[in-house]
Amino acid sequence: MRAASPLVEGYPKRIPLHDGSEVIVRPMKRSDEVRMLEFFSGLPLEDRQFLRHDVTQPENVHRFVTDVHRDTVLALVGERDGRIVASATLQRHHYGWMTHVGEIRVVIARNLQRHGFGVGLVKLLVKAAIQAGVEKIVAEVPSNRTAARKAFERLGFQREAILKRHVKDLCGRKRDLVIYANDVSHIWERMESMVLDFNPTLGG
């Protein structure tokens, strides 16, 4: 009864970079497994720290690519010259008190960071989240990743919480983890006000 693949229509898309070139963005496929492993393995250790699994281990990547629950996770990849250059996910909960919350995670190859690519990816995920009915979007960023933090702030995310000395970097230094949040519920509130059947302002 659920409408099929609600979030992956309209892909692949292209994100223009500051240098004028483009990266193709499309949903991740099962056949991406080998290239995903290549991408993850090529990340500097510092960037991999941010991930929840050791993605240099093939079985972890295999699980990520095949087991992604497509109803609750939208997984996009960036592709350039036949290589995967980014992984971006929107995760939702299907049950419980956080069904209205979506979480964004973005990993980008080093050579494409600071090119406007991350902002483009997050924009796509925010749009997808709104379309999926998400009311609040969250993202975690370690306090020292200033470029990533700026990208979220530019897109209207607010610093909602700071978990003090929460994550350890490569050297074992404890760093603050910033929780960013973007409350997009106003979009759905407009829809709600439209179905109120009370003095509806339905002008065109």
Partner: peptide, 18 residues
């Protein structure tokens, strides 16, 4: 598409389709 707020069109179209 014309009648619902921007950002909600997708879900509404899915609902229509269903």
């Amino acid at each position: 598409i014309d009648s619902v707020p921007r950002g909600t069109q997708k879900l509404n179209l899915d609902a229509f389709q269903a």
